[in-house]
Nucleic acid binder design. Sequence first.
DNA 1: ATATTGGTTACACTATGTGTAACAGATTTA
DNA 2: TAAATCTGTTACACATAGTGTAACCAATAT
Lengths: 139, 139
Amino acid sequence: MSASKKLSTAVKALYFLAETDPAPQSSVKIAEAIGTNASKLRQTLSLLVKNGIVKSTQGTTGGFLLVKKPEHLHLQEIYCAIEDRKAFYLDVNEVNGSGMEPVRKMNGFFLDLFSDIQVDIENKMRNIYLKNIIEQIKL
Amino acid sequence: MSASKKLSTAVKALYFLAETDPAPQSSVKIAEAIGTNASKLRQTLSLLVKNGIVKSTQGTTGGFLLVKKPEHLHLQEIYCAIEDRKAFYLDVNEVNGSGMEPVRKMNGFFLDLFSDIQVDIENKMRNIYLKNIIEQIKL
DNA sequence: ATATTGGTTACACTATGTGTAACAGATTTA
DNA sequence: TAAATCTGTTACACATAGTGTAACCAATAT
């Protein structure tokens, strides 16, 4: 899944958990509500479990439960939980040995630039809490 | 090609043109210098031609020539020239008709967020000129 | 025991990216 | 005029990555 799609799917699921009875919700139920398939959703939610954002219980009455409060959970935390690689992955051409030295330096320049952008994006996401999103959705 | 790779390739080519004799440079020569293949490079450079950033002449003595001065050419202009889709494309899940209405609104939220990020990135690129890059490379 | 659920792996299918080649049109050179 | 060279464009095979689905095990409640 693309990083952004994964993020929006995760937030939709978290939104569903935040707005539903505080009882474990199954992956099937969540998936139906947010319009995705349960198997893929479990893959994403299991990452949220590992990062302590949601809790999961198994068995007949099992499911997923929101642990973090919406006012304390921001997008960057969600993003980091579900994505191992850097946000909005960017790459540059590799340079073979025969290339000009400046070209090699150019790669460094772009990697730095993309890192800067990465930081900007993460800072932006750090200021957006699940609670903010819920409030905005309800307008 | 990914957006970022395309951008770095284009800038490398422009750097080469800026630092070489003001005579048309062939795609083969540029490609060898910056470590890519000529055919793919022509595809990118032709977009720069259409946007008036470089000029191309055909025939035996033909090649590519830098039109815009490095101090007046910024990254955003280069990016817009070579990329039709939005920078660093982001997507969200589509919602089928049976989904909750809030989920539909959530898509709007993320599209807005990603647009904001897009604007931030472009503003950042607007402040980086080819001349800046050249100077930084030479350090 | 049985049923249900999360967690994980596997897999076929699709889409996208990538490098390369080929060719037409334009232009210079001889 | 003929040949050589270059851009611009298209096509294509190949590799890589994304996607949806299914299947299975471990855990847990009834």
